[in-house]
């Protein structure tokens, strides 16, 4: 009887909840195995964005979340200003192609200073894991499994 009313009012069957909870937990299971990858990705993101604007590097946050049927990367990168700071030891192609004007901002370089020290040493190390795969092949395979998991669900 209770069940009947539950269904009448559109309550989710417990099996659907189970499936949803499993999806979420497996996602974090898989991602949490590669915290270094997330960290390297975050540092790379900050580095790229700080070429164009002044970034509050200390308060950046990169997380992964499940949204409906997809996995989303949520990057919360506070921007202090759009003034482009002076590029530090610019990576190739940055200086010529960079937007003109805005010679430099001294206020920005202070903020950047907090971001840059971590950048040079993480940047080379970040290269291999930047493609989210992780250290070993089997992990990569399972991860793809999860990323693919939402796909076959037609609901």
């Amino acid at each position: 009887m209770f069940e009947f009313f539950n269904r009448l009012f559109g309550a989710k069957p417990s099996s659907a909840m189970a499936k949803e909870r499993l999806r979420l937990v497996l996602l974090s299971d898989h991602l949490s195995l590669a915290p270094d990858v997330v960290e390297a990705l975050k540092n790379d993101l900050i580095e790229v964005i700080s070429r164009y604007c002044e970034v509050d590097a200390a308060n950046c946050d990169v997380t992964f979340e499940r949204q409906d049927k997809q996995i989303a990367m949520l990057a919360n990168i506070p921007i202090l200003g759009m003034q482009r700071p002076k590029p530090p030891a610019p990576p190739p192609a940055t200086p010529p192609s960079a937007p003109p004007g805005l010679p430099d901002g001294n206020a920005a370089s202070a903020a950047l200073a907090t971001a840059t020290p971590s950048a040079p040493d993480t940047a080379p190390a970040a290269k291999p894991p930047a493609k989210p795969g992780g250290a070993n092949g089997r992990r990569r395979r399972r991860k793809q499994g999860v990323q693919g998991a939402p796909r076959p669900q037609p609901t």
Binding site: S15, K19, R23
Partner: peptide, 15 residues
């Protein structure tokens, strides 16, 4: 009755 994961539910996850 929707009270247990179905075979498809399980294998949607395990593939």
């Amino acid at each position: 009755k929707g009270k247990m994961l179905s075979v498809d539910d399980v294998n949607d996850i395990l593939h």
